[in-house]
């Protein structure tokens, strides 16, 4: 249930930026989460309800941008869509892959009032 820690970190980031902007709360938060980042969206939703109570994010709508996984095969240089960390290269079958994208875990934007 590390998603609770993740939400707590999002709240912390939001609190800081709301304060810096001289605002009182956030109405919208945009998150970028890679499919290989190890975050379960349903668990995050569940943790969200609890963790945003009495914070600047309590009434904020969250918008998720899912970033699909992209890997490059170190054997044949094929770039392919990676859904799990143990997907082999679809061309040569090698597991010797380098992840190019999909580990993101970011607060992209925050709308404050």
């Amino acid at each position: 249930m590390h998603e609770l820690s993740i939400v707590a970190s999002i709240v912390e980031i939001a609190e800081e930026h709301v304060r810096k902007a001289g605002a009182s709360s956030a109405t919208h938060v945009e998150l970028e989460i890679g499919e290989l980042a190890g975050v379960e969206w349903k668990a995050l939703e569940f943790a969200w309800e609890v963790a945003v109570k009495n914070t600047v994010l309590e009434n904020a709508k969250k918008h998720l941008v899912r970033i699909s996984g992209l890997a490059k095969c170190a054997e044949c240089s094929e770039e392919f869509n990676m859904r799990t960390l143990f997907d082999p290269c679809p061309v040569c079958g090698s597991y010797f892959n380098v992840i190019l994208r999909g580990k993101e875990l970011r607060v992209k934007a925050l709308t404050v009032v």
Binding site: H17, H28, R106, V107, A109, L110, V112
Partner: peptide, 10 residues
Amino acid sequence: EKVLQIEQDI
């Protein structure tokens, strides 16, 4: 409302 592009790693 003010949109802040914060791009911060969680």
